[in-house]
Design a protein around this nucleic acid. Sequence first.
RNA 1: GGCGCGGUACCCAAGUGGUAAGGGAGAGGUCUGCAAAACCUUUAUGCGUCGGUUCGAUCCCGACCCGCGCCUCCA
Length: 494
Amino acid sequence: MQLFNTMSGRIEPLAPSDGSALRMYACGPTVYDYGHIGNFRTFIHVDVLRRYLKQCGMAVRHVMNVTDVDDKIIRNAAIAKVGIDAYTKKFEQAFFEDMEALGVERPEVVPHATDNIAEMVTLIEELSAQGIAYQADDGSWYFRIAKFQEYGKLSKKDFEGMEDGARIDVDEYDKDAARDFALWKSVKTDANGVREPAWETALGAGRPGWHIECSAMATKFLGESFDLHAGGEDLMFPHHENEIAQSEAASHQTFARHWMHVRFLLVEGRKMSKSEGNFYTLRDLLLKGHRASAIRLLLMSVPYRHQLNFTFDGLAESTHAVERLRTFAERMRGVFPEGLDVELAQASEKARAGYDAALSNDLNTAEAKAAIFDLVRAGNSAADAGTLRAGNAAAILEVLERFDGVFAVLVDRDAEITRAALAWAEREGRLEEASAEVVAMLSLTDAAIEAMVTERTKAKKMRNFARADGLRNELLAQGIVLEDSKDGVRWKRK
RNA sequence: GGCGCGGUACCCAAGUGGUAAGGGAGAGGUCUGCAAAACCUUUAUGCGUCGGUUCGAUCCCGACCCGCGCCUCCA
């Protein structure tokens, strides 16, 4: 498997250096609010990577942190008048519910920043012993960038020509140099005299800086040197650069050998932001009737190194694509004459090979998807022509299963996921954000739908088409589509 | 200002030094009680613009135009 490495700027082989499991660290969420689709694009692409590695027979040890203390959390918790524990717990739970809804596998290790304060303190002490960390007058600890010659090697920034203070008000801090970043923030008291959450440590009372937690936790769970570090492109600088500085200055070893960065998504051609009015959480979309599976497919269809332009046209397109794949998979599960059509067997092998070639080549999800759709057409054509044999159907299902091992959209959990989102909205008093169609569509239970379908089939048998069509239209009005076939009636939610 | 990415049909989007994957949408057709699904046909002499290299460029080089990202919290 070949993957682009931000550090070298080249596509390079990715393999476990210890010969057993690939050790990877991915920056996780800061749990201060509900996750938006941009967040999930990154997590989905990391999921694509880990799923494909496993499919290639590689064991994976994937660590993803949860940042459960930072400025926003402290501020928001104070506003909500709850402790930061209670505050973050709610959003962390929501985050993992969303990940589950989007089919993102849970990493092997999910450490919390607040559970690893001791490790961070030890790391800062080590840096201090080497004269790289220093304490400023306010009690906070900073990293002295001048002591780390390779600073900027990941983001390819040359700080020689940059003047301190160009963008930062130097006087605002007690740092020795403007670019020096905080390792440990000494405890402060806000305008109302309320003391911030703080840990009493050898460094003084305070809380960790953002960057140190990833260095400490990655090292704790993966060692001082590991295979891959991933995250959103915005984290490249300063976050990942700072992680490298802290870790390598302390250990004198290469922190991560391979760096993967997922590019941002745009919404309708513009950067997603609350002020643009184009900011969407997963829950926003689910309540509007968009399906989790279609959102996953859309977010992963454009390869991770390309910007993705998220549009509602694109989402509708993905909805149809998922539907077509599911319809095809179901068709292949049908009964066919024994035997094997050689030409079609070659087509399914070609699709499998195309799928693997695409993903092996820097995770080209668009090409992998195209290979599978070639197979969909070939399989459907053969089934229509009557040349498809049981052996072909089995082979095709095998290819589809491999495809779905990474894409994970074939199993239909959409109604269940949307129901859960509605239940959440109800609990939160946000039900008015849901579209009327969604509420209507899910108000019918599967059993109720099936009863109506049976009744229509009866009417149809008696050639009472007026009655049959009436029932079909009634269901359609509630978002249920019927399809007649030789093998009976299928129904699905629109 | 510095660093980086991209401009491919109606829309989304792969890709390659030898003449354009895939998906969606539209149109026509097959099938069907009617629909739906599925399939077939069809939609870029063309890949931002202008030069250059080459037997040949969308793909390489240069300039320019446009869009976007990072440089500050941010996936």
